[in-house]
Structure formats: structure tokens, C-alpha cells
């Protein structure tokens, strides 16, 4: 399980589900929850594109979709990608809405870090509008992935990355998340990972917990319970490259933390240990 080769002829799929509801305008740290969401999705897409970049261009190892939910539920890309449920990663690479400039920490060759100015692609601006129809978003994802799996039954199973503040307004999404995880290719079940942005006073930064003990509220616990366990390979990457100390049972759930690890832990060939 979770061992199918990911290649251009056997692509995999990553589906993002992002919360764009009115509650996302709440302050969060130095900005708002919606800014945290747009920053997280832009960063994850950037990492995925760079992972698939080669000297000749982008290799389409992944098909990618983004479902937004708030005032409505549906494909969230704008510009030339507007309305598309699933596109090859090369189309995403070539169509950010703008390129910002940001400082990035890079190794200086002497075990330190220096700031380097890099182009940061932006596909999503902060959006906060309407209710939080999380159950409907999960059902939409189910429909999109059912169709994709029908075409790619032997491929590495789709990875779903859901970013939210967790406050569903159309009911408890537990059953819908379970139905999403029940979808499968010949290589395993759909992997559902949740990134919870929480402004609960007791919410600490938490990555891939093995129990719900340290979670601050019901919203966190529902998302934790709905998350797939990390695969063995992901646990290995987490421990070797990210200096985490995860064991079997670590869930694909993070609280107020970065989920880039799951992108880096998708195996498309040799990744040097000294590539950061």
C-alpha cells in the first residue's frame, strides 16, 4: 500500500479544500485567519510545483484541484484556471495570479542561514465570506475524487489537504470525512490531512499528534479524528528530515502549524538529504 510509482504516466492527485467563510476574517496572530489560509495554500502549491520542476519544465506528476467553501462551494482558482476542478500541476505553475518578492532563509554554506530575495507565486488572495458548509465541501471533494479515481485506479491514492478554522455550519463533518477516506485506488485509501487554524486561547502549535489529549476544543478533535494516519514513508521523512519523533499512529493533522512536510514526503525519486 502507498507504494505505487508516481510518474507522468501514473500521476497522483492532490485536492485542497480551503475554508473561505466569514469567520476567517477573525484576527489571527499579526493578520487574519483568511490570510493564514491563503498563505498556507500558496506555500503548499509553490512547494509542489518546485518539486515537479526539472530543467526542461514541469513534469506532470500530479493533478491538482482546489475547492473553496464559504458563500458557495466549488472550484476556487481564478484567472484562466477559473471553474476547473482538476488540472495538471504544469498549468498551475504557469498561471499564478501574481509573483510577489519575499525573503527566504537559505543555507550560507557555513552551517548558518542568510536571507535571499525570491519570487513568491500567489494564486489565492484572502477570502472571508458566508457560512462554513464543511459537509458540503467534503461531499463535493468526494464527487471530484470519485471521478478521478475512476480514471486512475492503479495510481498512488489522492491526497486531500483541508485548511480550516473548523467551525462547520452545516453539521458535524465526521461522516463525510470518513466517506472521503473510504475512497481508494488499488494502492490504498484516500489520505485526508487537516490543518486547523485555531484562535482558541489554549491552542498551541501541534504537529502530527498520536492522541487527541492536547487538543484545545471539539473543532480540533473532530478534525483530528477525521485525519488519516501518516504513511510509513511520511513518518520516516518526518523523523529523518524534520527531526520529529513520530511513531505509528501519528495522524495527518496539524494545529496552527505547517503541512509542507506531506508535500516533501511524496516520493517521486531520489531527494537528497541535504536539499532544503
Amino acid at each position: 500500500m502507498y507504494s505505487a510509482e508516481i510518474s507522468r504516466s501514473n500521476p497522483s492527485c492532490i485536492l485542497f479544500i480551503i475554508d473561505q467563510s466569514g469567520s476567517m476574517s477573525d484576527p489571527f496572530g499579526a493578520s487574519t485567519k483568511s490570510e493564514s489560509v491563503s498563505d498556507a495554500i500558496n506555500r503548499l502549491l509553490q512547494n509542489l510545483v518546485i518539486k515537479c520542476a526539472k530543467s526542461e519544465g514541469i513534469r506532470d506528476y500530479y493533478h491538482v484541484g482546489v475547492i473553496g467553501y464559504g458563500a458557495g462551494v466549488g472550484p476556487a482558482f481564478g484567472g484562466v484556471l477559473a471553474g476547473k476542478e482538476m488540472v495538471p500541476i504544469s498549468e498551475i505553475a504557469d498561471n499564478p495570479s501574481k509573483l510577489d518578492k519575499r525573503l527566504k532563509k537559505v543555507p550560507d554554506g557555513a552551517s548558518g542561514l542568510v536571507d535571499q530575495l525570491v519570487k513568491f507565486p500567489v494564486w489565492f488572495e484572502p477570502v472571508a465570506n458566508g457560512g462554513t458548509p464543511m459537509c458540503e465541501a467534503m461531499r463535493t471533494a468526494h464527487a471530484v475524487l470519485t471521478q478521478w479515481i475512476g480514471e486512475y485506479t492503479q495510481c498512488f491514492p489522492p491526497v486531500v489537504i483541508h485548511i480550516t478554522d473548523g467551525e462547520s455550519t452545516d453539521g458535524d463533518p465526521t461522516v463525510e470525512m470518513e466517506q472521503l477516506r473510504a475512497l481508494s485506488t488499488d494502492d490504498g485509501n484516500v489520505l485526508l490531512f487537516n490543518l486547523h487554524i485555531s484562535d482558541s486561547p489554549s491552542a498551541v502549535e501541534l504537529r502530527f499528534p498520536e492522541t487527541a489529549d492536547a487538543l484545545p476544543d471539539t473543532y480540533s478533535r473532530v478534525l483530528y479524528e477525521g485525519s488519516s494516519p501518516l504513511t510509513q514513508f511520511m513518518i520516516q521523512v518526518a523523523n529523518q528530515e524534520y527531526d520529529l519523533n513520530l511513531s505509528d499512529g501519528a495522524r495527518g493533522f496539524v494545529l496552527n502549524a505547517d503541512l509542507t512536510l506531506v508535500i516533501q514526503a511524496l516520493d517521486i525519486g531520489t531527494r537528497p538529504a541535504n536539499l532544503r
Binding site: 554554506g109 557555513a110 521523512v237 531520489t270 537528497p272 538529504a273 541535504n274 536539499l275 532544503r276
Partner: peptide, 14 residues
């Protein structure tokens, strides 16, 4: 699948 390799960017060869 994650060996330390020789990089063409000296900063990665520390």
C-alpha cells in the same frame, strides 16, 4: 532514498 549527495550549490555541501 534520502542520501547526502554532492551539490552544485556549495551552501548545501557544508
Amino acid at each position: 532514498r534520502r542520501p547526502v549527495l554532492i551539490s552544485s550549490n556549495a551552501a548545501n555541501n557544508a
